Lab assay of single mutants.
Amino acid sequence: MLDDRARMEAAKKEKVEQILAEFQLQEEDLKKVMRRMQKEMDRGLRLETHEEASVKMLPTYVRSTPEGSEVGDFLSLDLGGTNFRVMLVKVGEGEEGQWSVKTKHQMYSIPEDAMTGTAEMLFDYISECISDFLDKHQMKHKKLPLGFTFSFPVRHEDIDKGILLNWTKGFKASGAEGNNVVGLLRDAIKRRGDFEMDVVAMVNDTVATMISCYYEDHQCEVGMIVGTGCNACYMEEMQNVELVEGDEGRMCVNTEWGAFGDSGELDEFLLEYDRLVDESSANPGQQLYEKLIGGKYMGELVRLVLLRLVDENLLFHGEASEQLRTRGAFETRFVSQVESDTGDRKQIYNILSTLGLRPSTTDCDIVRRACESVSTRAAHMCSAGLAGVINRMRESRSEDVMRITVGVDGSVYKLHPSFKERFHASVRRLTPSCEITFIESEEGSGRGAALVSAVACKKACMLGQ
């Protein structure tokens, strides 16, 4: 009897593995994704193909990295998701002549009506938060230079001027797309009239992360975010950046690689679950690469896999709870928690219980395998993109072996128990001629924006502006 049951459990697990095998990517698959990513990057950089390229390769006008001589107080704003952060950054000489960066910050959550109302409502709310922060720190009387981390696709015309191309991540505030974001912020500050600010720089969160990590390690020339969304930036040779005049030196390019796949480059790798996630998203047909990796989508992918296993009578005796059938019910943090389970399955059992399920031991094991399959594919897909960037940098610099540091931020990278190990191992397999160091950014977005502002202020002083 026991043997029969054991055989049935083994057969069930084997069927589960057959279904989950769809998520496995072979090294040849990853090399294919990497080569296609490089081709799209090239198209994004070139003037004649930029418009139709899915990977936009947006110039950021960040050319210099901090040298350690900029000092002063800077205000930093960070808008990239449902939370908005205001930070005071003091850049100065530390002990023994070292450079020191001290920060104080406060988080504000953005109400739904500000995210989806008008641009005026959104930026009025942001300036209200700045006003509140300055009151708390008794700094209303000071006109501070301000660095703005704005983590949406922007076409820069200068370091302090950028046109919002399109909202992502659930934002829909009308009247912002096609307009200068810094102008919208300046107008809102003017409307309030109770404080003055000098907006000197606007950067993407990947750029802010790279600059913040450069402060720790001067070989950091790539910034990457794996959180709600997924994106990367890197220092490109100016001669390859056709959208900006000049051939000397390097400029940081914001790849906006989340949109890779929007022209069909990933079609052969998309599964039924991916198509369902895409169809029910706020932007169907867009940001397809990001939807395979980002935390906004990972939990939902797992939920759809679990429903398939229920329908195949391989999980929960073929019956799903009402909660499990509800879109968004299986949160991405559950994926991390399930994979963090120590082996007694308590954590998995508790999560499934909150979803109205009474799982068996085998159910718990199957749910864990589903989570591992989805998150491992995410790590491997992400590795193909980064390997594409790094191999490109090595080739354009004609280096036999390139040493490089990548600064990384984002909740999936930082909080998932195995993502970074799987990701690092896969990147290294795909970049055999590179020695890569990964560092995690601390308060990256805010500190990085302030350091970019410090560079901009120093330049302005040198130019006598």
Score class of each variant (00 low, 15 high):
R5P: 08
A6R: 11
R7V: 12
M8P: 10
A10G: 11
A10E: 14
K13I: 15
E14L: 14
E14I: 12
E14F: 14
K15A: 14
Q18E: 08
I19G: 05
L20R: 10
L20F: 14
A21S: 15
Q26V: 04
D29H: 02
K31L: 07
K31N: 09
K32S: 07
M34S: 05
M34E: 03
M34P: 04
M37F: 05
Q38E: 01
Q38V: 05
K39V: 08
E40R: 01
M41I: 09
D42G: 09
G44V: 00
G44D: 01
L45G: 06
L45S: 14
R46A: 14
E52R: 10
S54A: 09
S54V: 12
S54N: 10
V55C: 09
V55R: 02
K56S: 14
K56P: 09
M57C: 10
M57D: 00
T60H: 01
T60F: 00
Y61W: 06
Y61G: 00
V62M: 00
V62L: 00
R63F: 00
R63K: 04
E67Y: 08
G68C: 05
S69L: 05
E70R: 06
E70W: 04
G72T: 00
D73T: 02
F74M: 05
F74A: 00
F74I: 04
L75K: 00
S76H: 05
S76Y: 06
L79R: 10
L79V: 09
G81C: 15
T82G: 09
T82N: 10
N83T: 15
N83S: 10
V86M: 03
V86H: 01
V89M: 04
G92M: 06
G92I: 07
G92L: 08
G94K: 04
E95G: 04
E95F: 13
Q98F: 12
K102A: 08
T103A: 13
K104G: 09
H105A: 06
M107S: 10
M107P: 07
D113R: 05
D113S: 09
D113C: 12
G117I: 02
G117N: 01
T118Y: 09
A119F: 04
M121H: 15
L122I: 08
L122M: 12
F123I: 03
I126R: 01
I126A: 13
E128V: 04
C129A: 06
C129N: 03
S131C: 11
D132E: 03
D132V: 06
L134F: 05
D135Y: 10
D135M: 07
M139S: 14
K140A: 06
K140I: 03
K143L: 02
G147E: 10
F148S: 09
F152N: 11
P153G: 15
V154D: 11
V154N: 03
H156T: 15
D158C: 11
D158F: 15
D158Q: 13
I159T: 15
D160N: 13
D160V: 09
D160E: 08
G162Q: 12
G162D: 13
G162E: 13
I163G: 13
I163C: 13
L164N: 13
N166G: 13
W167C: 13
G170Y: 15
F171A: 11
F171T: 12
K172V: 05
A173W: 08
G178A: 06
G178L: 15
V182D: 11
G183M: 10
L184Y: 15
L184C: 08
R186F: 07
A188N: 04
I189H: 02
R192I: 06
G193M: 01
G193A: 07
V199R: 11
A201E: 00
M202S: 02
M202L: 04
V203R: 00
V203E: 00
D205L: 06
T206M: 01
V207F: 01
T209Y: 01
M210T: 02
Y214V: 06
Y214A: 04
Y215V: 00
E216Q: 06
D217V: 02
H218D: 05
Q219N: 15
Q219T: 15
V222W: 00
V222N: 01
V226H: 02
G227Y: 00
G227E: 05
G227N: 01
A232N: 08
A232R: 00
C233E: 00
Y234W: 01
Y234L: 03
E236Y: 00
E236L: 01
E237M: 11
M238R: 04
M238D: 00
M238F: 08
N240P: 01
G246D: 03
D247F: 02
E248R: 03
E248Q: 10
G249M: 00
V253F: 04
N254R: 05
G258S: 15
A259D: 10
F260K: 00
F260T: 03
F260D: 00
D262C: 13
S263K: 13
E265L: 07
E265K: 15
L266M: 12
F269S: 02
L270D: 08
L271N: 09
E272K: 12
D274F: 08
D274A: 01
R275L: 14
L276K: 09
L276S: 09
D278F: 04
S280I: 14
S280C: 10
S281W: 10
S281A: 07
N283S: 12
P284W: 11
Q286C: 13
Q286V: 14
G294A: 12
G295Q: 15
K296D: 13
Y297G: 14
M298R: 08
G299V: 05
G299S: 07
L301P: 00
V302R: 00
R303W: 03
L304A: 06
L306V: 03
R308N: 03
V310F: 07
D311Y: 08
E312D: 05
E312L: 08
E312C: 14
N313T: 08
N313K: 08
N313S: 11
L314A: 14
L315Y: 02
L315I: 13
H317L: 13
H317M: 15
G318H: 15
E319S: 15
E319M: 11
A320M: 13
Q323K: 09
L324S: 06
L324Y: 04
R325W: 12
T332M: 14
R333Q: 12
S340W: 08
S340V: 02
S340K: 10
D341A: 05
D344M: 05
D344L: 06
R345W: 03
R345D: 13
K346E: 06
I348E: 06
I351P: 08
L352D: 00
T354R: 09
G356C: 03
R358F: 06
R358K: 02
T362A: 02
D363A: 01
C364H: 02
D365T: 09
I366C: 04
I366K: 04
V367T: 09
R368T: 07
R368D: 06
E372A: 03
S375I: 06
S375V: 09
S375Y: 04
T376V: 10
R377Q: 00
A378G: 11
A379Y: 04
A379K: 02
H380V: 14
L386V: 11
L386W: 00
V389W: 00
N391T: 07
N391W: 14
N391R: 10
M393W: 09
M393C: 14
S396D: 07
E399K: 12
E399A: 09
V401A: 09
R403N: 12
I404R: 10
I404M: 03
T405E: 01
V406N: 00
G407D: 00
G407E: 00
V408N: 08
V408H: 06
D409H: 07
D409G: 09
D409S: 12
D409W: 03
S411M: 11
V412C: 09
V412I: 04
Y413K: 03
K414I: 09
L415T: 09
L415M: 04
L415D: 14
H416F: 10
S418F: 08
F419T: 03
F419R: 04
F419E: 01
H424L: 06
S426A: 10
L430E: 03
T431H: 11
S433F: 08
E435P: 08
E435D: 11
T437R: 11
T437E: 08
E440L: 11
S441T: 03
S441A: 06
S441W: 10
E443C: 15
G448E: 11
A450R: 14
A450E: 14
S453F: 14
S453K: 14
C457D: 12
K458T: 15
M462H: 11
L463F: 12
G464R: 12
G464K: 11
